[in-house]
Every structure is written in C-alpha cells, then in structure tokens.
Design a protein around this nucleic acid. Structure first.
Lengths: 205, 205
DNA sequence: CACCTTTCGTGTAAGATTTCACAATGATAG
DNA sequence: CTATCATTGTGAAATCTTACACGAAAGGTG
C-alpha cells in the first residue's frame, strides 16, 4: 500500500481531486460514487475504484465515497496539505498570466517570486509580486527553500536555467519552453507546449 | 499501414518533429538515428523505430533517417503541410500571452482571431489582432471555416462556450480551463491545467 | 427481519504498450 | 572484393494497464 504505485495512477489523482472539489462546490450532496465521478470525467468506474484502492479503502458499499473525506485523503496523498511556494522564471506575457492567475492558491501552490533577466522588467509590479533580477535567483530560492518552479522563458535559455534551478534546490519543474530538458535523477519535469497539443489533434481532423 | 494507429504513438510524433526541427537548426548533420533522437528525448531507440514503422519505412540501414525527409513525412502525417487557422477565446492575461506567442506560425498554426465578452476589451489591439465581441463568434468562425480553437476563459463559462464553438464547426479544442469538457464524438479536446501538472509532481517530492 | 438495491474492492482475464534481440541492409575502409 | 561496423524494421516476449464480473457489505423498505 505504499511504493510501486504506477505513475499513470498518480497522474489521475489530481483529476479526481479537482472534480471532487467541483462536486463540493455544487454542494448538492455529501457523497459520490465511482460511477458518478467516472461519468463526469469520461473514465470508467472500475478504473477509479482500482486507482483509489492502491491507497486504502476510502469508500463504503452501497453509499460510495464521502466527498469531504476523499478530498482530504487525496490531498494528503499528493502532499497538498500545506502550500508549496513556487518560483516563476520569466516575466513576459506568460509570466504575467501566471502571476495573475488566482487558481493556484486554493489548490496547494503559491507563486512566491518571479524573476527576469531584463533590467527593464526588474522592479515591475506583477499582481502581488515584484519582478526580481535573475542574478538573485539562487539566493532567494535557497533562502525560501523553494522546491517547485515554472519556466516561462525562451527555449535557448531553458536548459541552462534548469541547471541553475536544480542546483539551487528545485525538485519539480513545469516548463513552457518547447524543448526537452535534461535533469538529474529525482527531479520531476512536466511540459506544456500548446503546439504539441494542437499537433496531436490535427492528425484526427 | 493506415488506420488503427495507437493514440499514444500519434502523441509522440509531434515530439519527434520538434526535435528534428531542433536538429535541423543546429545544422551539423543531414541525418540522425533512432538512437540519437531517443537519447536526446529520453525515449528508447526501439520505440522510435517502432512508432515510425507504423507509417512507412523512412530510414536507411547503416545511415539512419534523413532529417529533412523525416520532418516532411511527419508534417504530412500530422496534417501540418498547410497552416491551421486558430481562434482564441478569452482576451485576459492568458489570451494576451497566446496572441503574442510567436511559436505557432512555424509549426502549423496561425492565430486568426481572438474573442472576449467584455466590452472594455473588445476593440483592443493584441499583437496583429483586434479583440472581437463574442457575439460575432459563430459568424466569424463559420466564415473563416476555423476548425481549431483555444479556450482561455474562466471555468464556469467553458462548457457553454465549448458547445457554441462545436456548433460553429470547431473540431479541435485546447482548453486552459480547469474542468473536464463534454463534446460530441469526433471532436478532439486537449487540456492544459498547470495545477494538475504541479500536483502530479508533488507526490514524488 | 427478509428482501432489494446500490456500490465497493479485487482477482482474473483481456488488451495495449514497450522492450528485446536479431536478420537484413547499406556504408566504409583496406 | 571482403570484412567490419552501424542501423533499420520487426516478430516475439515481457511488462504494464484496463476492463470484467462477482462476492461482500451497507442502507432502505415494508
């Protein structure tokens, strides 16, 4: 009930968590079922039950899952009980969008700082934050013990910046730069490239 | 060699294409091998060969793959030989970022129009474009025969907007709204929710 | 209480995906 | 021309993932 849980299962937990939160917001009910959850997400009920069964027995026969309880459990499993400070690197349009996005706070993350190497942008106010010079990056990340960063910079500087971040202690990286990044063992990387996603769909058109 | 190709294989083709383009830009060589490509992408060479073999025999024993030729073939397979017009819905910070992103054009897509329902934003200049009122959405999408759209709007309006887009003829949708969308058969949907991606990584920290 | 309905958790079967490993082919060098 | 090396394409094996189907619980009803 601990190690050896497939990545693909972990990958679905945040989806379940998000939908549970929506259900709670709708507030019409205290419990849900694998069938209802699956129907809303386009996933089979069996898969949801099997996924959850990796971590314990959260449901009750005949009733289903208590929404509040399952939400708590999933949050714990995903280490979201306390907030993660996040560093955003790059204060361009995308950095702007990230800094102003208010969807992080409720879901376990807080943008703690934003960096840029352009002296024109340094000092600029962005949401609650002020753009910091990238020369202070290591100092601030180490001081705040930041483990999570988002890359919103051009591709040709993404790998060196990744190296700097990892060196400063970052362990999880979400990159919007359209290149594959190389990181040491134990560092997590996730990518978001809208063009890749669009290209995956055009095949079927 | 035609139908019945696994989605997961299609999903990797854009990654190969992107890396081939990078190789071409580096310009040091005319050919590459499954081994080199795999090494650069963290994918096994066998997988790359098997993936490509679904579509034909693009390589040459002893030599590998001609970069230019393989790039062309993949572009064709993914229907990227001519550009797709894309509608962006939502002219907030994210819509801004998308409208100004210049990584689309080289890779098969052109932002053709951007919509918002806020009268204050309508008429605003954004990159090359002017924000259109969402009331004109159906008219413009039908007229330009737009098949691809990007959703950059709040979650509570995402499903109704999806319905409108699909109704107007959109067949592929990239959504930044943090909810699951329901669409008819034959319409492609892809999601991008940074929080989901971050939550997938925190489990491992 | 007896019966019916709902829904979970799970062993097993089915299906999908990846890896292995090798014959075949082409290039290169002496 | 022959030997050597690199690399592909692919059948078969191994591994991973999903779907099926059912016993067992829990709640509701009369």
């Amino acid at each position: 009930m601990a190690t050896d849980i497939p990545d693909i299962v972990i990958g679905r937990l945040p989806i379940y968590l998000r939908e549970l939160t929506r259900l709670a917001e709708e507030g019409k009910q205290k419990t849900t079922s694998s069938h209802e959850l699956g129907h809303r997400l386009g996933i089979s009920s069996a898969q949801i039950r099997k996924d959850l069964s990796h971590f314990g027995e959260f449901g009750k026969q005949g009733t289903g899952y208590h929404i509040g309880y399952l939400t708590e459990q999933l949050s714990d499993i995903l280490r979201l009980s306390s907030e993660w400070d996040v560093a955003v690197v790059g204060a361009g349009f995308l950095g702007h969008a990230l800094a102003h996005y208010n969807g992080f706070l409720d879901r376990g993350f807080r943008i703690a700082c934003i960096f840029d190497n352009d002296p024109q942008k340094v000092g600029e106010k962005m949401g609650e934050l002020i753009v910091q010079p990238d020369t202070d990056l290591e100092k601030i990340i180490k001081h705040k013990q930041i483990k999570v960063a988002i890359l919103a910079i051009p591709p040709h500087v993404a790998q060196p910046m990744t190296d700097r971040l990892v060196n400063a202690g970052v362990k999880a990286l979400l990159s919007y730069a359209p290149i594959h990044l190389t990181v040491p063992e134990g560092v997590q990387v996730s990518y978001s490239d809208p063009v890749i996603q669009l290209q995956r769909m055009t095949y079927y058109l």
